[in-house]
Design a protein around this nucleic acid. Structure first.
Length: 153
DNA sequence: GCCAACGTTGGC
DNA sequence: GCCAACGTTGGC
């Protein structure tokens, strides 16, 4: 079982949307490294920090988990979709996504607060130049973050 | 809106 | 295979 942080712009899809919808296919990832994490390393039951990015209050907004292992991203085949990829075919899909299930909404844990904790200095999203929308979280980091959230690890 | 960082594209 | 140009990300 692994731990992950997954970014979403709340104007596109927020923790409240996930709470309402219960489960989402995490479509739209068009970065190979992030795709590979989903396709090659994620399994059902993996724990997820749901992160709000590109917004007024960037930070961790809730907890989720992987509920289905990776399969081809439906939007790559749809010419009308903004995530359409003309080079992808059902026989040769290029992009994959997992399903993510809502666990709970937490307090908003801002990125500025994450930066204050030395034990989180290694957190991938805090590294300079980080842009990956999906990053692994190590167990120590996970525990430290859950403690900050007042959740039991 | 700014800008650093980074990934992708395409000409050669 | 190199690398300049370009587009995107995302915090501030």
């Amino acid at each position: 079982m692994r731990y992950w942080l997954m970014k979403s712009e709340p104007s596109e899809f927020s923790i409240d949307d996930l709470a309402a919808q219960k489960t989402i296919d995490w479509y739209g990832v068009r970065n190979y490294q992030a795709r590979n994490f989903m396709r090659d390393q994620m399994s059902v039951g993996d724990k997820v920090l749901f992160y709000h990015s590109s917004c007024a209050e960037p930070g961790i907004a809730g907890l989720a988990e992987v509920s289905r292992k990776a399969y081809p991203d439906r939007t790559q085949f749809d010419p009308a979709h903004k995530y359409h990829d003309p080079k992808a075919t059902p026989e040769n899909p290029r992009w994959f996504n997992v399903d993510v299930r809502f666990v709970k909404k937490t307090r908003l844990l801002p990125i500025a607060e994450l930066r204050q904790h030395p034990e989180l200095a290694t957190l991938r999203i805090l590294q300079k130049g980080n842009r990956l929308s999906i990053t692994p979280v190590d167990p120590r980091e996970w525990e430290a973050i859950l403690a900050l959230l007042g959740e039991k690890a």
